[in-house]
Design a protein around this nucleic acid. Structure first.
Length: 913
RNA sequence: GGGCUGGUAGAUCAGCGGAAGAUCGCACCGUUCGCAACGGUGAGGCCGCGGGUUCAACCCCCGCCCAGUCCA
């Protein structure tokens, strides 16, 4: 980045001078001629601790000070966006204030909601998770106070000088001494954009970053700037992207040891009490350690692996033993972690994220479980839901959509579930440990990987428990990368079948989409624009292409020659392709199109019904209900929703009734194109249920109380949907429930189908359908009882049979070789009973196949040997154990010969020994 | 979205091709003034569901359902 970028008139006019940091060699601007270092970590330690650089502010006071300052200076104040980035499909969580305006506002496609604007945006970043609580400054959730100006070629709002002027003025307004501020030059790039940037430093702390985004990766005719090997081109929109860390401002205004002490005073106080850490605070020695640790913690960058080294260096720096430092610091770090994580969770859950094992839900669960682990380690018994509720209250519950009751329920669910996982885990480990102890081996790494990957048990936990059990564990340093290796298999790239035609259609005029204007029509006239490989492109069409979970229309194209079947319809760019088979069309030819009416009407009913069901589910289950996917069909459709527990049968009934009530209200469905930003401000991000559509304008579909951005075809009024019948609820994956349903005539067909089963089943047991449940119940119970009775009878028959089963004796050994009537299992019972009295039995039975059972009560006689010889005669096979063997053969005509063979075999065995 | 692990008695789990087992819990009997403990006896299983292979499947193969878990 070029040096001239930072040569601002403002700096010159206000007496700021450019210097080079003697520590890191980076350039910075300051009013203080004596300053030699840039003021950033690690060049300078925290000097504001104990010596605040701003007038004292609480979090709400500071936020208000900032927002109202910029409001006074011509900015429009915006409400914060949710921490779940629902308007984007490339990130799960809002990571910066500028993320609110990506990608459409920043690209210049959509005008910003206000210009210039100011906002205080809560952001969640989980990449520094290990540093949270330890560094004294890292947070999982922080509020980025910002003012943004979007400069277009037509309209320039302001640029660098004004931005720096605002910064100075704002800092002065909260009591900063401007001579203590330094502006460090810091070229910025990330997320495909770049530009010059200034870091604002005071008291050794970076409190804000002023980014002047003017470069992008999108290729233009202008000369690119090369950054980190990549070319960046000047952008049409130049954006002032500032970020003032709210929590850091509050911290610097209070000069407390850590950022956590500044922003969570109440929560930390109560936790300190709970685990009796006051003694550390009241002892002068410990208080001293804490203060020094805080001061120097800014200097060190924490990486998980080098933590130990860092801590040793820190102990050396502040002149205490490593052990003493650990003893004091560790509990506080954990405390801070809990304070931070619970606020992060308050925002995640408050903004309707549902914990699960996928997407942002997974991140919520990750943070929640981390919090629980830390609480267990510290011995904190307080209900996590209480802590989170405190954070919700502290942040102001009106900022959250989710009700506190639901948040509490979700947390309790998660706590329960985690406890169960841990219990299950320790049982598995104990079993494993004792198994390996018996083998006198240590638990191999392969087992650890399985435990972690499949059961969520950390290797540390395995080591702890296994050690208690007296077993050894091999735990390699690169354990987690070994696990990662397991998942490293690259997912095969999915081929998009139409991609090869993209260039071919690029030059064609966009197809006019009649299906949006003439929603009720089924016939249209059109001219053929192009034809290739069976794909027809028309100047206009009623055929709806596959999209938004709605399948494509099928139908006919009628020419002067005849009729052509349209089997599928796709959209490629702005052109719609009709897939046909077995005919040829010519450019310029006129055709008449006719879509399959019944199919289309059914799809429309199902699509509108999807919106109604989503609304109904939201009413019944809570505001967090959000569509996770949908597939419409003409016979039945599916709606996947995010929810934190299984939907109960009662809830299903209520949702169904509610949806059908909205049908009977027969309200008109309104569809109109609205400007994206305006629609977002008007309806909120609940608009985006089926993904985020591209473009400046979005198609807003209002069905009863449901408002969504949707590209599908819909009925004219809810009444046209007809009856909505939920067919089943499926649990697709953790946190996602699938509602399968039918609408209109399809629902009637389904009910008739269902009734068919009922009548058939009732007929089979000869009862009225309403008696079916009790009858089936009775039959099942009776069946079980009779099965037991049969067992008892078999045993009695066996006893009777055994009494006169003997067909002879070989020496002292009673022998029974005979045919009898009975199932193989009966034969087994009888033969075994005979063998228990020291005898040897060979029993045969059967009509089409001969079953052979041999039981031996004599150690000389091996049952398998006998059964094999007998079965061979019968043309079959068999096997078993030395005392009981079974087999069969198909050659009934050799029955007598088989009996003969059995006798001979026994004789042979007994005489041999 | 991609993996992995598991589903056997009320609970926790063995078994893993040749008649369904253990421990705890439960019921009853004994011991006891009574309880606990102990001894004895017993009840309790569509071995998740549906196909297939086999003389024979809880066990092997395929599909499905359910639960858990890791990664993106």
């Amino acid at each position: 980045m070029m040096e001239e970028e930072y040569q601002l008139d403002y700096f010159r006019d206000h007496g700021l001078i450019r210097k080079i940091c003697t520590s890191c060699a980076n350039p910075f601007w300051t009013r203080d001629p004596g300053r030699v270092v840039c003021g950033d970590a690690p060049c300078e330690s925290y000097t504001f601790i104990g010596h605040p650089v701003f007038d004292p502010h609480t979090v709400p006071e500071m936020r208000e000070a900032f927002l109202s300052f910029f409001e006074r200076h011509g900015h429009t104040r915006l409400e914060r966006y949710p921490v779940a980035a629902r308007w984007r499909d490339d990130i799960y969580l809002t990571i910066a204030s500028i993320a609110d305006f990506q990608p459409f506002v920043t690209s210049g496609l959509v005008p910003p909601p206000a210009n210039p604007l100011t906002i205080s945006q809560p952001c969640i970043r989980l990449n520094d998770l290990d540093s949270v609580g330890r560094s004294g400054r890292h947070l999982t959730l922080f509020e980025m106070m910002a003012h943004h100006a979007f400069n277009s070629q037509e309209r320039v709002i302001y640029w660098k000088d004004e931005t720096v002027a605002f910064c100075d003025e704002f800092l002065a307004s909260i009591g900063a001494d401007l001579t203590k501020i330094s502006y460090k030059e810091h070229p910025w790039f990330g997320g495909g954009n770049a530009g010059p940037s200034l870091e604002v430093l005071i008291g050794g702390l970076e409190v804000a970053t002023l980014v002047f985004m003017n470069l992008g990766r999108e290729k233009t005719t202008e000369t690119p700037v090369i950054l980190d090997g990549d070319p960046y081109y000047p952008m049409k929109t130049r954006i002032v992207d500032t970020g003032y860390g709210l929590e850091r401002f509050v911290w610097a205004s209070q000069g407390s040891p850590t950022i956590y002490d500044a922003i969570f005073p109440t929560l930390i106080d109560s936790l300190i009490h709970e685990i009796h850490l006051e003694e550390f605070l009241s002892t002068q020695e410990y208080a001293h350690i804490l203060a020094l640790n805080a001061k120097y913690s800014g200097l060190v960058d924490i990486q998980g692996s080098s933590l130990l080294q860092m801590r040793k260096r820190m102990a050396y720096t502040i002149g205490v033993s490593f052990e003493d430092l650990q003893k004091v610091i560790v509990p506080f770090e954990k405390l801070y972690t809990i304070a931070d994580h619970t606020r992060c969770l308050a925002y995640m859950l408050g903004d309707c994220i549902v914990p699960s094992n996928v997407r942002e839900g997974y991140l919520a669960r990750l943070v929640l479980r981390r919090t629980l682990r830390t609480m267990y380690e510290l011995g904190i018994k307080t209900d996590l839901a209480d802590l989170i509720e405190m954070q919700v209250k502290a942040s102001g519950d009106q900022t959250f959509e989710q009700s506190t009751d639901v948040i509490r329920e979700i947390v309790h669910n998660e706590v329960d579930r985690y406890r169960q996982t841990l219990q299950r885990g320790s049982r598995i480990i104990q079993k494993l440990a004792s198994a390996y102890r018996k083998k006198n081996r240590s638990i191999p790494v392969a087992e650890l990987i399985t435990l972690y990957d499949s059961h969520g048990i950390s290797p540390e936990m395995v080591r702890d428990i296994a050690t208690q059990e007296g077993s050894e564990v091999e735990l390699p340093d690169n354990f987690y990368s070994m696990v990662a290796g397991l998942h490293a298999q690259a997912d095969s790239e999915r081929e998009i079948p139409l991609e090869k035609y993209r260039d071919q259609v690029a030059g064609l005029p966009p197809t006019k989409k009649l299906y949006y204007e003439q929603t009720d029509d089924i016939e249209f006239d059109a001219g053929v624009i192009d034809f290739f490989d069976g794909y027809v492109i028309l100047d206009q069409t009623l055929f709806y292409p596959e999209g938004g979970g709605q399948p494509a229309d099928t139908g006919l194209l009628i020419t002067t020659e005849g009729m052509i079947r349209v089997e599928n319809t796709f959209q490629l760019g702005e052109v719609i392709l009709h897939q046909t088979r077995g005919s040829v069309l010519y450019r310029g030819e006129r055709v008449k199109g006719k879509i399959d009416e019944e199919r289309r009407r059914s799809l429309m009913r199902h699509h509108t019904a999807t919106h109604l069901l989503l609304r109904a589910a939201k009413d019944v289950l809570g505001t967090h209900i959000h569509q996770a996917g949908a597939q419409k069909g003409s016979e039945s459709s599916r709606l996947d929703i995010r929810h934190y527990k299984h939907i109960t049968p009662e809830e299903i009934l209520r949702i169904e009734v509610l949806a059908n009530q909205m049908v009977t209200e027969d309200s008109l469905i309104s569809i109109k194109w609205e400007e994206r930003t305006k629609a977002e401000q008007k309806y909120g991000f609940e608009l985006y249920q089926g993904g985020v559509p591209p473009g400046k304008e979005i198609r807003v579909v209002r069905v009863n109380r449901d408002v969504e951005a949707c590209a599908g075809t819909h009925c004219r009024s809810t009444g046209e949907v007809g009856v909505i019948k939920i067919i089943r609820i499926e649990h697709v994956q953790d946190g996602i429930e699938r509602i399968e349903f039918a609408a209109g005539t399809a629902a009637i067909y389904y009910l008739q189908h269902l009734e068919g089963f009922l009548f058939e089943a009732a007929k089979a047991v000869s009862v009225q359908p309403e008696n079916l449940p009790t009858t089936v119940q009775r039959f099942f119970t009776e069946w079980k009882e009779q099965r037991k009775e049969i067992g008892r009878l078999q045993k009695r028959i066996a006893d009777l049979e055994i009494a006169h089963l003997e067909t002879g004796k070989v020496g002292e050994v009673p022998v029974a070789v005979k045919t009898m009537i009975g199932t193989p299992s009966e034969l087994v019972t009888i033969a075994t009973g005979f063998a228990e009295r020291g005898g040897v039995a060979v029993l045969l039975s059967g009509n089409e196949r001969v079953h052979v059972v041999v039981a031996s009560g004599n150690p000389k006689v091996h049952a398998v040997a006998i059964v094999q010889r007998v079965c061979q005669v019968l043309g079959g096979k068999g096997g078993g154990t030395s005392v009981l063997a079974q087999g069969s053969g198909s050659r009934i005509e050799f029955l007598d010969k088989a009996l003969e063979e059995g006798r001979a075999a026994i004789l042979g065995e007994l005489n041999a020994g």
